[in-house]
């Protein structure tokens, strides 16, 4: 886990890789979610994969470095909470319709619109919520355990 670069002076290559890696991982993640209930994998796995793509950056650049390279990660907590709220919404919206929680629309047996393998129904919201939460949460986790500029952390 000892990075090659010195603190505060990461290699340019690492920086570039760090910026690029999340891209493809997002594609994989999108695929995992889009395949719906048909095959192995779900929002959780997708989220971890994206987080794993972010991880090397933390290893290489340290927490501050990553923040400088990928400012968007600063919003990780909001993403996590947003994901949870989205998931909760998908779980509890049926209450508005007088149905038990975690009922889904279209209801069992009804027709579902599909775009390729992607089924457009409410569990998809759950999956997206889980994905967002996992990405956010694991990013925060990596940030917290990532190498700080100076040890001590008080």
């Amino acid at each position: 886990m000892r990075p090659g670069g010195r603190d505060g002076a990461p290699d340019a290559v690492v920086r570039v890789v760090a910026r690029l890696l999340p891209g493809p991982s997002l594609m994989v993640a999108a695929g995992l979610i889009a395949k719906g209930y048909a095959e192995v994998g779900d929002g959780f796995a997708a989220g971890v994969i994206v987080a794993l793509a972010i991880a090397p950056s933390y290893v290489a650049l340290g927490a501050e470095g990553v923040e400088a390279a990928l400012p968007v990660l600063r919003h990780a907590p909001a993403v996590a909470v947003g994901g949870l709220l989205l998931a909760l919404a998908s779980g509890f919206f049926p209450l508005l319709l007088g149905e038990p929680p975690v009922s889904h629309r279209p209801a069992p047996g009804e027709h579902v619109v599909k775009i390729g393998a992607l089924e457009l129904f409410t569990p998809l919201l759950l999956d997206i919520g889980v994905f967002l939460l996992v990405v956010g949460v694991l990013t925060v986790l990596l940030h917290q355990f990532g190498r700080p500029r100076r040890e001590g952390g008080r």
Partner: peptide, 12 residues
């Protein structure tokens, strides 16, 4: 369900 939902959402 509401008893569950209230603390869950507000906690989040």
């Amino acid at each position: 369900s509401i008893a569950l939902l209230v603390p869950w959402v507000s906690g989040a």
